[in-house]
Nucleic acid binder design. Structure first.
Lengths: 154, 154
DNA sequence: TTGCAATTAATGTAATTACATTTAATTTTG
DNA sequence: CAAAATTAAATGTAATTACATTAATTGCAA
């Protein structure tokens, strides 16, 4: 079952066209998987992404802009996502002392606890990929990076 | 510039976690590229996807369900997307004679003309990937397919 | 120092999406 | 055949997204 069967598309103009479609399709598919995984915890993939970024700061605050720079979906409105996490009492928000335009955001213990819960299922889910060799995963990461770089240096 | 730099994330738990993030990020990134490319033509990536599916039917009608099965984003509401294309007079919609629950959709000449215009820029855009070897593109397609298959046969 | 440009977040809004429900037609089952 | 179940599409809706604009603050240059 390859991308051709998944989309019932018999022919592609080129290997590149096929790859473009495959990347978008697999990205959506992966996001959907994540979405399903998160549903029981009441988080959207974007909220989860923000929460993990906050955890990654190890008790240091980060601004809304800093969050945006680290998000997988750069178009998301980090300001409103933080609002949602605030409502759920998973994060803390306060004016940044160094720059009063900016806002510092930090994860709360409740957020860390929730993430640890999700870590368990996430880990179990990732085990399904165990059959794919390290080499392949490496190759995949490299090729995807290379593809994006074609444009950053154009 | 790899995914680590793009997201300012120094460490990943595993190569698999990194690949999951990389796939979602590159998928979003690719979609964004497509979006930019389509803006001058007044089409969203989803509308464009539908239009190309219709062209792929070579003058045969296809139902809304058939469109959904072929779409990259399975969650899109094909019914409303067809509405939009109808507004733009790019497609034709009529009751399916064999099954009156279903609706046949076909691309109109205006739709084909628009797609041909977009083909040009799409092709020019894809040229940027020319530096990436055929082998790599093949590998990429195979690995992405393999990743999705891990779940279809779970 | 003052005024202008740039930066940071927040907000308004129209469009889109996710998800459930509805409507209509077809198929299956008793 | 009639009733029930299933299928296809459309629609209602609340939430989210895309995009532009605004408000507040900072940095810089004259």
């Amino acid at each position: 079952m390859g991308i051709s069967e998944d989309l019932k598309q018999t022919k592609f103009n080129s290997l590149t066209s096929k790859a473009v479609v495959n990347i978008i399709f697999t990205g959506n598919w992966m996001m959907q998987q994540t979405h399903e995984l998160l549903k029981p915890y009441g988080l959207t993939p974007q909220q989860y992404n923000v929460l993990r970024i906050l955890r990654g700061q190890q008790n240091n605050p980060i601004t809304v802009l800093g969050i945006t720079e680290r998000m997988m979906d750069k178009m998301s409105n980090a300001s409103r996502l933080v609002d949602k996490l605030l409502e759920k009492k998973l994060v803390l928000r306060r004016e940044c002392p160094q720059d009063r335009r900016a806002v510092d955001v930090m994860i709360l213990p409740a957020g860390l606890v929730l993430l640890e819960e999700i870590d368990q299922v996430q880990l179990a889910w990732e085990k399904k990929f165990a059959g794919i060799s390290t080499d392949k995963m490496d190759q995949l990461n490299e090729i995807l990076d290379e593809i994006r770089n074609v444009f950053t240096n154009n």
